[in-house]
Amino acid sequence: MTSEDPLDGKVSIVTGAGGAIGAGIARHLADAGSDVVLAVHNDEDVAEEIRDRGQRAHTVQVDVSNKDSVDAMVEEARSEFGRIDVVVNNAGALTVGSIMELDEDDWDRVMDVNAKGTFLVSQATIPYLRETEGTIINVSSISGMIAAPDHSHYGASKHAINGLTKSLAIELAEDNVTVNALCPGIVASKMWTEQLTPESEESFEETVDRVIPLGRDQTPADMGEAAVYLATSENVTGEELTVDGGIMQNIV
């Protein structure tokens, strides 16, 4: 680590840090100089990878849909590192099915993790972000900007995240806290390879070829680079940063 690292001395919380996108974001925040709290829910621990990058790492179990669990996670982060500068709301859930196939549990689980979880973690960390003039990065999706069949509850949750992002950006501007949404396109995560493409006749590769103008899927590293940009851009707030290989420009 050098003094030129843009996040030198900062502390970041990444929820869903055991998944592909969360781990990619955590790695890049560490490479930029940040210590990282890895908030996971029965996921793989990537703490050693962060330490190998020369940064401190601390893993904490959390259920982002439960206020007591979130409050305990934030208190543990503060106890471990003494400050919070960057909060990445990345934890997410998805099930697939048409509106008539969804039951109440499907709806509640996706909305609780994606929308309510983003709200609870943001609310719990804002007092500390005000102290450090920090930033919130809400990992949304291009599904929060467009409509798609068979996961209406997921799309609704991501639209909710984008709306919350914009409102918080205005509400926290006077505190010099920035709030942005990061909207991935198609990443080879378990969500895509195990839940989305198996439900269709197309393979993951066929889907990428069909819908992405650049002809390649996005990577966890892409999301990490975008997160570092948002974490270090003091005049960017209330934005939806789309990293999708051109998908949104190809929709007619």
Rank of each mutant, 00 (worst) to 15 (best):
Q55E: 15
A57F: 08
T59H: 07
T59Y: 12
V60R: 00
V60C: 04
Q61L: 10
V64E: 03
V64F: 00
S65W: 00
K67P: 10
D68W: 11
D68L: 14
D68Q: 10
V74C: 03
V74A: 02
V74M: 01
V74Y: 00
R78I: 07
S79P: 15
S79N: 11
F81N: 12
F81E: 13
G82P: 01
G82K: 00
D85M: 12
V86I: 05
V86S: 03
V86G: 01
V87C: 00
V87D: 00
A91C: 09
G92C: 03
A93Q: 08
A93G: 10
A93V: 11
L94S: 09
L94R: 14
V96R: 15
G97H: 06
G97P: 04
S98T: 09
M100R: 05
E101A: 05
L102G: 10
D103G: 03
D103R: 02
E104N: 10
E104C: 06
D106M: 03
W107K: 07
W107V: 15
D108T: 14
V110R: 08
V113A: 08
N114V: 01
A115T: 04
A115N: 02
K116F: 02
K116D: 04
K116R: 10
T118I: 02
F119S: 07
F119H: 12
F119R: 06
L120E: 00
L120N: 01
V121R: 00
S122D: 08
T125M: 09
T125A: 13
I126Y: 06
I126D: 00
P127Q: 14
Y128Q: 10
Y128C: 04
